[in-house]
Nucleic acid binder design. Sequence first.
DNA 1: TTCCCCTTGTTGCAAAAACAACATACGCTT
DNA 2: AAGCGTATGTTGTTTTTGCAACAAGGGGAA
Lengths: 225, 225
Amino acid sequence: MEKYHELLLKNPLFSDIDPGDITLLLQCLNGKTQSYRKNDIIFLAGDKARAVGIVRAGSVNVMKEDFMGNRTILAIIGKGGMFGEAFACAQTDKLPVSVIARADSEILLIDYKKIITTCPSACAFHHRMIENMLGILAEKNVALNKKMDIMSRRSTREKLIAYLSDRAAEAGSGAFDIPFSRQELADYLCVDRSAMSTALSKLQSDGVLRYTHNSFELLLRSDDD
Amino acid sequence: MEKYHELLLKNPLFSDIDPGDITLLLQCLNGKTQSYRKNDIIFLAGDKARAVGIVRAGSVNVMKEDFMGNRTILAIIGKGGMFGEAFACAQTDKLPVSVIARADSEILLIDYKKIITTCPSACAFHHRMIENMLGILAEKNVALNKKMDIMSRRSTREKLIAYLSDRAAEAGSGAFDIPFSRQELADYLCVDRSAMSTALSKLQSDGVLRYTHNSFELLLRSDDD
DNA sequence: TTCCCCTTGTTGCAAAAACAACATACGCTT
DNA sequence: AAGCGTATGTTGTTTTTGCAACAAGGGGAA
């Protein structure tokens, strides 16, 4: 049980909650831990979203099936991870994704209503959890907006500039490091790696940018673009 | 004052709150209405995000300035609209955007802490507002994820298929209408209108799709793609 | 009806990206 | 140090996009 609580404490939903309060909190939440075998369906697309899931053991796939029947894995959620929170909080009528067990798994399912409704005893940690949930959703929102800003550019060159500018702004300096390999960066920007590599070279030869490995430096140019 | 409350009631943050409770709620929130002249800075990029803004009168620009100094308008928020909620809830240290008055405006600023902290009297409507805020953030999240799924496709053709599949899934049928004109759809997908038009024609001649005006029908194909 | 404007579809062309295949550089293990 | 595998950069080809200009069609107003 000790290990179980440790796992929860690592989850941002429970951050800044006193470990000693976790047991009480779990009582308020009335979560049920359910076991699933590999390939079992945890949530099915089309269902009403009511619960948030936390992976106690094993891992799950968040999957999407399009109209043509092609299935895509949107996310792989491992031990300690959470899924379904956005759909639960949005009270979506029809879940647009399915969640399937990748392996035999133990999932803690918590009813959304129990999360957002402070319990009769109005426990402080419960309130903290609501705040955490707001923070989680808000941060994802900010990250997604940032990425959308990048992805809306038409060319690889512009996507690179948008991404690198953003990193520079975050670092507060023209010189900064990036946390991606080239392939990862290409995946993040949704472009071809080799084309991106070419675009990077061109940016350098154009004098807009200098880089070695993962260290970059954007060079301000007052005139044209 | 009556008009002012009407405006708030239309805002999703206050939905399902009894109009009679609004006055009390506003006291809990301790919001300040401030006047700004055209081009006044309401939030400045780099500031700490602490407050949510609601436009009582006038309108504001949410703007971003990149490393090169190019400014982009991310959003125009009109009367009744809200801004800054994601940054406030994420407790962002450095606001990545600025908010500027487009015209002389009256802005109701509410401290984020006051929103998420239920007041001593634990009023029910205050709690409802927290739930609303969760819903707002979660819905934006879902919408952004949906769009990301579309935007991550490499070609216009694939973006179209992703978008139309999504619409079909939402309609629960291969036949459905879309709420966009061609130009709007192109903007949504971040592609060129005429290229998109060509891609649509090709999809139709390939027998994947039929459409007239804004009525579309996706035709299932069991074999290849 | 006729005229005009706006939306949508089409075509040609230039630029860019995707793709593939290869070359080089780097880090790690033995 | 040598050898190997991975990551990165380069080059050439094909496909697609973006752009621009134009044609076709529809709706509304006079």
